[in-house]
Design a protein around this nucleic acid. Structure first.
Lengths: 192, 192
DNA sequence: CCTGAACCTGAACTCCGGTTCCGAATATGG
DNA sequence: CCATATTCGGAACCGGAGTTCAGGTTCAGG
C-alpha cells in the first residue's frame, strides 16, 4: 500500500506532503489527464521523488481519492445529524455532488469502472455506503422518498448528475428535475 | 472531409466498406479504445489502407458516428409520427437510449465534449435537435411534461441515463425514476 | 564535525499506439 | 494483353507519457 510507516526523514515527510498537495490541486482541476512531470514541477521536486513515495501514478491518484472519500464520509455523517429526514437526504445529495463538481479526480473515480487499485479505499467506501443507506431509509420511512427507493438509486441519481457536470450548473437543473419530477400535471400520471 | 468522390476503383470501394464495417463493429463494442491495427486486421487489410480512406483515427470515428446519427434521426422522425405526444416522447427517449446502449462510440460522442472534428456531423445533429424540440413541445403542450421542460432537458436526462450504462440495465431504472418521480406520497410535496 | 544511510534529481529508457512511406500488387482503359 | 495510375501491405518511424537509475545531496546520530 501507500501507508507511510514510522520515521520518515524530515525532508522526506515534507516532500511527501508537497507531492500530495500538488497532486490534489492538479487532479482536482484536470483529473487523470495531468502528468507526473507536471505534479513534480508544481511540487518543486524531481519526478523521481514522486516514485519514491508512490509506486506509480495510480497509487498517487488513489491516495488523493482516498482523502476525498474521507471528507465525504464526514460530510455524510454530519448530514445524518439533521432531524428532518428530507433535510438529511438533500444535505447528503448536494454535499456529495458539490464535492464531485469541485474535484475531477473524485468524479473520475466515481464514474469510471471499479479499479482494483482503489482497494485501499474500500473501507472508507463501506463506511460511506452505510451512512447513505441509513439516510435513505430514514427518508423512505418518513414517506419523503418513494417506498421502493434503494441506496443503489442514490448512486444512479448522482451518476446522472455528474454526467451533467460540463461547464455551467447544468447538473443542478438535472437534480431539480429528478427531485421535483418530470411529469406535467395536466394529464393522467399513472401511465408509463 | 471524408466524402467519397466519384469513381473509386472497384477494390477501393470494396475495401472502404470493409473498413467501415469493421470499425463500426469494434467502435460499437469498445469505443475509442480500439486501435487502428485491430480494425485493419478485422477488415483483412493493412493499416496503410485505413489511412488511404480516412485522414486519421478521428476521421474514421467521425464517419461511424455520423452513420449512427443518421439512424437516430430516422428514429426520431418515426417517433414524431405517433399521435399521442407522450408515446412520441417515450419512443424517442428509449430509442435514443437503446442506440446509445448498443454503441459505445455513439455514447463517447454524446458524453464527451464537443470535438471540432465532429463538424461533418453538425448538419445531422441539427436535424435531430429540431425533431426533438418538436416532440418535446408537443408533450409539454399536452401537459404530459412539466410546463418548463426544455429540449435541453432532454439532453440532461439522456446524459444521466447514459452515465448509468455500466453492465446491467441500471439505466432503465434511472429513467424510470426520472419519469415517475422520486418523491414519496406520504408528505408535503412542495418543499424542495 | 564526520560518516553512512536515506533521499533527491532529471536525463534516459521503455512501452504503446498513431502515422508514414515506398516497393509490390492490382485494376482499368486502350 | 500492356502500360500505367491506383491501391495495398506492413515494417519502420515518431512523439508522448510513465517509469527507472546512476550519481549527487542532505539529514541524523555518534
Amino acid at each position: 500500500m501507500t501507508a507511510p510507516v514510522r520515521s520518515l526523514r524530515a525532508d522526506a515527510r515534507r516532500n511527501r506532503e508537497a507531492v500530495l498537495d500538488a497532486a490534489a490541486e492538479l487532479f482536482a482541476r484536470r483529473g487523470d489527464a495531468v502528468q507526473m512531470d507536471e505534479i513534480a514541477e508544481r511540487a518543486g521536486l524531481g519526478v523521481g521523488t514522486l516514485y519514491r513515495h508512490f509506486a506509480d501514478k495510480r497509487a498517487l491518484l488513489a491516495a488523493i481519492i482516498g482523502r476525498r472519500f474521507e471528507a465525504i464520509t464526514g460530510l455524510a455523517r454530519a448530514a445524518d445529524e439533521a432531524e428532518d429526514p428530507w433535510v438529511a437526504f438533500e444535505t447528503l445529495l448536494y454535499g456529495y455532488l458539490e464535492s464531485a463538481e469541485a474535484d475531477a479526480a473524485f468524479r473520475f473515480a466515481l464514474l469510471g469502472p471499479e479499479e482494483p487499485s482503489w482497494n485501499d479505499i474500500a473501507a472508507e467506501k463501506t463506511d460511506f455506503s452505510a451512512i447513505t443507506e441509513r439516510i435513505v431509509r430514514r427518508a423512505v420511512d418518513a414517506g419523503r422518498l418513494r417506498a421502493d427507493f434503494r441506496a443503489d438509486d442514490f448512486v444512479l441519481i448522482t451518476r446522472g448528475a455528474m454526467a451533467n457536470m460540463t461547464g455551467a450548473g447544468a447538473w443542478r437543473r438535472h437534480v431539480m428535475l429528478v427531485l421535483e419530477g418530470i411529469r406535467g400535471s395536466g394529464a393522467a400520471a399513472g401511465d408509463v
